[in-house]
């Protein structure tokens, strides 16, 4: 099944398939709504437990508000649900401890993950958050493959990582932003030192 044909649709974009099986409604943090089959949800341990705990009937699914997934945007969630629909019914892999991990990236997954690295990292984050084991495995495998034969500078660009200097500067900026009084105290301390005082207090 191709990515285009995967049965995940935005509610306001296409017709809902009329089937007896239940389709749950989820909403991303940017208010995009998705309908996902019960079987596809089972790929996500987190969502599966959530819908089990909610115990919705078919009427509830239609009448109650969509289940909000507040940490994931619509673009990422669309990829996640496309993946879950394509792989619905498949067994959840168990880690057998083999190293390197034996992970094959199927054609569908490779095409789904043919995206920019920023979105790929969001997809990994979402797979981890929603506990979708095999999606996490294939997406991490793709990221690991990207590292092969690269220099540290190339990896910094590929993985969108800061250099040590940029990292330090970002940390300082974050610290100051979090506590503006710290900078004021530091400036006051410097001023008193200039004036010849030994004790700050």
């Amino acid at each position: 099944m191709s990515v285009e044909n995967a049965p995940v649709v935005d509610v306001d974009e296409a017709a809902i398939p009329v089937e007896k099986k239940m389709y749950y409604r989820f909403e991303s943090n940017d208010k995009k709504e998705f309908r996902v089959s019960e079987l596809a949800i089972q790929q996500s341990e987190t969502l599966n437990r959530l819908v089990e705990a909610m115990g919705y009937t078919s009427e509830d699914v239609e009448n109650k508000p969509a289940i909000a997934i507040e940490n994931i945007d619509g673009k990422t969630l669309k990829l996640v649900f496309q993946w879950c629909e394509h792989h619905k019914g498949e067994a959840i892999p168990v880690d057998d401890g083999s190293v390197p991990k034996i992970v094959e990236i199927p054609e569908f997954d490779a095409k789904l993950m043919d995206i920019d690295n920023g979105l790929l990292f969001k997809l990994i984050w979402a797979a981890d958050y929603l506990n979708i084991v095999q999606l996490l495995n294939v997406s991490c495998k793709k990221v690991a493959n990207m590292a092969q034969g690269k220099t540290p500078a190339q990896l910094r660009r590929v993985y969108l990582l800061p250099s040590d200097e940029e990292d330090e500067a970002a940390k300082r900026a974050a610290q100051e932003a979090q506590d503006p009084r710290a900078r004021e105290v530091e400036e006051e301390f410097e001023e008193r030192k200039r004036q010849g005082g030994n004790s700050f207090f």
Partner: peptide, 10 residues
Amino acid sequence: ASLLDMTDVP
């Protein structure tokens, strides 16, 4: 998002 935004598991 960058690699370092991920949790320990991924």
